[in-house]
Amino acid sequence: MKHVRIEPDEFGFSLDPQPYLEVLPGLAGGMPAGAREFATEPGHYDFSKSRCVKDLALEGIEFGESDSLTLRFRHNCWKHEEDLIIGYIGVTDYHVSVELDGGRSRLLLDEVLPDSGGCRHELVFRDGTIAITCGDLVATWIDAECPDK
């Protein structure tokens, strides 16, 4: 990632989205509408908020019609009240180096950047990465059930 800092440490990982948050206001205008809305959503990088992406579990990757892709994330009952689905439109490039392994592929953080054809979304997991270049993305939060709540 270009701005978000993720470093291994003795407790797992040190995460610092602050450098990205400092440049995000200047980057947001160059992003397509869906990407801009997702990246700038209040709480996206606030670890105490339920719509922070940290700790979501990658549940599925679906390849659609020729240039579409969908990532499905399952909530973490300790933190989230919703699952997240991100649909990518006009996909021109993607790289996946993370395994679907029953919920252990937990998202550390992500970063959305403007790109000449739309945007680039990079996601870093505890055990790999996903990077998608596309025309735009649509992020949808849907209610989830947590038996402990």
Rank of each mutant, 00 (worst) to 15 (best):
L113F: 03
F73V: 08
S66Q: 14
F47Q: 10
C52T: 11
A35D: 07
C134E: 08
C119G: 01
D55I: 04
P42C: 00
L56I: 04
D55Y: 11
E37V: 06
G103C: 04
L56N: 09
Y94F: 15
R120N: 08
S50M: 05
E81C: 09
K49D: 13
I130L: 02
T70S: 13
G90M: 01
F73N: 09
F38D: 13
I85D: 12
E65V: 13
C52Q: 03
E65W: 05
D136C: 03
Y94D: 06
A57W: 02
W78G: 11
G117I: 10
A57K: 13
C52F: 00
C134G: 05
L123Q: 12
R120Y: 02
S68H: 06
E59P: 04
I85W: 00
S97T: 15
S68C: 06
S116A: 12
T129N: 11
A39T: 04
L113K: 08
E82V: 07
I130N: 06
E111T: 12
I132D: 05
A39D: 05
T92A: 02
D46R: 04
R120Q: 13
L108A: 05
I61L: 14
R74C: 02
G118W: 03
D115M: 00
F63P: 09
G43A: 04
C77Q: 08
F125W: 06
I85H: 04
L113I: 05
L69Q: 10
L137N: 05
I85A: 07
L107D: 05
C77M: 03
I61Q: 07
R104I: 02
L107W: 08
F125D: 11
E122H: 13
R74G: 14
V96I: 15
S66N: 14
V53H: 04
L109H: 11
E82N: 15
V91K: 06
A39E: 07
C134V: 03
P42D: 10
C134T: 13
G135L: 03
H95T: 14
D46E: 13
K79M: 10
C77G: 12
R74H: 13
L69H: 06
I130E: 08
V124A: 12
L69C: 10
H121K: 05
L109K: 08
D110G: 11
C119F: 07
G60S: 14
T70P: 07
P42H: 00
